[in-house]
């Protein structure tokens, strides 16, 4: 695009962000403050992820952008176009082909590889924010690894509901040291972060924080020995590809309570369909869904 640098940000800014990224990789799960810039997209819409992607993107990269697991959601389209326009890089919807995947709210179903980077958009990087609003105080809590209050929250959930009632942005302990917000991915995706071969980068633009998980790092979801972490998904099969192990979206098909469950990861679903897997293709009635 005329008048703008490769991938929008100037090289000084990208260098500043890469320095923050290096620090973040060196201290897994630790939030590194950085001089987040105003971007032409609104705060909360992926400015952190965009700045991280812009800083690690090279001309030879192939970029995939997903939102809610899908490549064709409006915000994913908007961000993919932004980079196609400002960096002219190749884009793809194929998880296999991508070298950089920017995501909001999902981790692809397909296992990622060592030669891939996944960039998460993060609205609230501070896992303790709901327990302690002051960032000066949460910084101290991280420095001293004082995480008892987070376990108190889990204790309260189990006491009240019989199990932990956090279903997304479920806090994790990274490398046995830092409590980290995995961004609002469903808890279903948490286990994929553990010992992932790909580099995981997290950008929070509005809150001006960057953090990272290097490849093959221990990432544990918080739990109790006698109430181990477990994931939830809708207990149905995908209506399009028949998958019984992928994360599903629930699509309401009429006003009588009929719905259809389909893979949230559109690339995963399409790949399976191309391989000949099929689902019922039919909506199901209300009772069956519950």
């Amino acid at each position: 695009m005329n008048g703008y640098n490769f991938a929008y940000l100037d090289e000084q800014t990208k260098r500043m962000i890469r320095r923050a990224l290096l620090k973040a990789v060196a201290i897994p799960g630790h939030q590194v403050p950085f001089g987040s810039r105003e971007m032409p997209l609104p705060y909360g819409w992926g400015t952190g992820g965009i700045q991280v992607t812009a800083s690690v993107l090279g001309a030879a990269d192939t970029l995939k952008v997903i939102d809610q697991g899908a490549d064709d959601t409006t915000n994913a389209v908007s961000i993919r176009r932004f980079f196609a326009r400002t960096a002219g890089v190749a884009t793809t919807t194929d998880t296999n082909e991508a070298t950089i995947i920017q995501t909001r709210h999902r981790i692809p179903e397909k296992a990622l590889r060592e030669d891939q980077i996944i960039v998460y958009q993060v609205p609230q990087p501070e896992p303790l924010s709901k327990l302690e609003p002051s960032r000066a105080e949460t910084r101290r809590m991280h420095a001293l690894a004082e995480y008892g209050s987070m376990h108190v929250r889990l204790y309260e959930d189990i006491t009240r509901f019989g199990h932990v009632a956090i279903s997304y942005d479920y806090p994790v302990m990274v490398n046995h040291r830092y409590l980290m917000a995995p961004s609002p991915i469903p808890a279903f995706d948490n286990p994929k972060m553990h010992m992932m071969p790909a580099l995981q980068l997290f950008g929070a633009g509005r809150e001006k924080r960057i953090y990272a998980i290097p490849p093959y790092t221990d990432v544990r979801s918080l739990d109790f020995d006698d109430h181990p972490f477990r994931t939830t998904r809708a207990p149905q099969c995908c209506a399009l590809c028949g998958a019984d192990d992928s994360y599903l979206d629930e699509v309401v098909t009429d006003d009588q309570g009929g719905r259809m469950f389909v893979c949230s990861d559109t690339d995963h679903c399409e790949t399976r369909q191309a391989e000949g897997h099929t689902g019922t293709g039919e909506p199901i009635a209300r009772e069956a869904a519950e």
């Binding site: 209050s149 376990h151 108190v152 204790y155 189990i158 109790f224």
Partner: peptide, 25 residues
């Protein structure tokens, strides 16, 4: 912590000390 149950209040120091067994806490 006024918004945490009596049990959670008593158990907090155990959890901070690394106790991870809900039943024991």
């Amino acid at each position: 912590r006024m918004s945490v149950s009596a049990g959670g209040n008593v158990g907090e120091r155990l959890m901070a000390a690394g106790n991870r067994h809900y039943g024991n806490i």
